[in-house]
């Protein structure tokens, strides 16, 4: 187990270096001079242009810029944002808890509902429940997030007034955010109603962000369960007189979970993409909204650094998923 973990950690190094190269090259491939873009219609003098190019290191040859960038990364220096003039890492860390909180809630919702729906659909294969669930999953998977979010806002926030339109907390609550996780901070604040407000603000963004992973997990669970339910050992379990709940819950589900866990792990990276749209629509102050702002402002340092940090996060999640295999199914050996 330890050897496996170390191997995987070592493998992350070349992957990460490859990612730095891709991020670096892609940003440089974008046409246009980032310094001139900063000036917009106003333009700038040739001297000022040269001064700013030198300040950001853009006057150096590409190989030099890349080496400087790598050297910086080794010291956890992801660059300075063009627009806010603050370190990219600091900006990322300030926003990451918001994204993490939303993603955790969404993945929990997607997993619980998706696995449950997938199991029932598999056990009652061909029933109306199966048809509706799988049809719904297909619709959910194909749904444009932007449109879906606006639809929910119009219905639940504007028409019914059940949920707030956007944000993380009611504006009447005002307390220091110690952890950055609003559910925790609102509980710690002791302010009456703050936690409920945080929960209400989480509902719609969580539902929107969970929609696609929920559909994928439900379909994956169903097909994995169907495969396992057809195995000979399942027949043995039933013929031994075990209760249906025990057969499905213990024998079938445990075996079917391996591909499902992989799917959930993969959905984390999908979720990072979904978070960009969801956060923009719900004014959720996380890294998705931050990246969109950076792209709009052509803040290349943030785009590049943010891309790497998100990739790093996804790599860590994938590592955890790999390690989880062992817990789900001890037959999987790491050596």
């Amino acid at each position: 187990m330890l050897r496996f973990t170390l191997n995987r950690l070592l493998l992350m190094i070349p992957t990460f270096i490859g990612l730095t190269l891709i991020a670096f090259v892609f940003i440089r491939l974008l046409p246009g001079d980032p310094v001139l873009l900063l000036a917009g219609e106003r333009g700038m003098s040739a001297e000022r242009h040269a001064e700013l190019l030198a300040q950001f290191g853009f006057d150096q040859p590409y190989w030099r810029q890349y080496l400087d960038y790598l050297t910086g990364l080794m010291q956890a220096d992801f660059g300075i944002s063009f627009s806010t003039k603050r370190p990219v890492l600091e900006e990322f860390m300030a926003r990451f808890p918001a994204t993490l909180e939303l993603s955790i809630c969404a993945i929990i919702l997607a997993s619980v509902l998706g696995i449950t729906a997938g199991i029932i659909a598999a056990v009652k294969r061909g029933s109306w429940f199966d048809q509706i669930t799988m049809g719904g999953a297909l619709v959910g998977y194909s749904m444009p997030i932007f449109w879906w979010a606006l639809l929910l806002i119009i219905l639940f926030s504007a028409k019914l007034g059940w949920t707030p339109v956007s944000g993380r907390l009611g504006l009447m609550y005002f307390f220091p955010h110690k952890t950055g996780f609003m559910l925790v901070d609102s509980l710690m604040s002791g302010e009456k109603g703050a936690f409920a407000s945080a929960v209400r603000h989480l509902i719609l963004p969580t539902v929107v962000l969970a929609t696609i992973p929920l559909a994928v997990i439900a379909r994956q669970t169903r097909s994995a369960m169907l495969e396992v339910l057809g195995e000979v050992y399942m027949m043995t379990a039933r013929s031994k007189g075990l209760s249906p709940a025990r057969v499905v819950g213990l024998h079938a589900l445990r075996n079917a979970l391996i591909p499902v866990v992989t799917t959930i792990g993969l959905q984390v990276s999908v979720m990072m993409g979904g978070a960009i749209l969801t956060e923009t629509i719900f004014s959720w102050p996380g890294i998705g909204k931050w990246m969109i702002d950076a792209i709009t402002r052509r803040d290349y340092q943030v785009v590049q650094g943010g891309l790497l940090l998100i990739a790093l996060f996804v790599m860590i999640v994938n590592l955890i998923v790999d390690l989880l295999y062992g817990l789900v199914n001890p037959r999987v050996r790491y050596d």
């Binding site: 806002i153 926030s157 339109v165 956007s166 944000g167 504006l171 923009t280 004014s283 102050p285 702002d293």
Partner: peptide, 20 residues
């Protein structure tokens, strides 16, 4: 005075209608 950051114009409009 509170400035609530809301990027999407459609969402800003819904917040205005909802009194937020």
């Amino acid at each position: 005075l509170v400035m609530a950051i809301t990027i999407d114009p459609g969402v800003r409009q819904q917040k205005l209608i909802a009194g937020e």
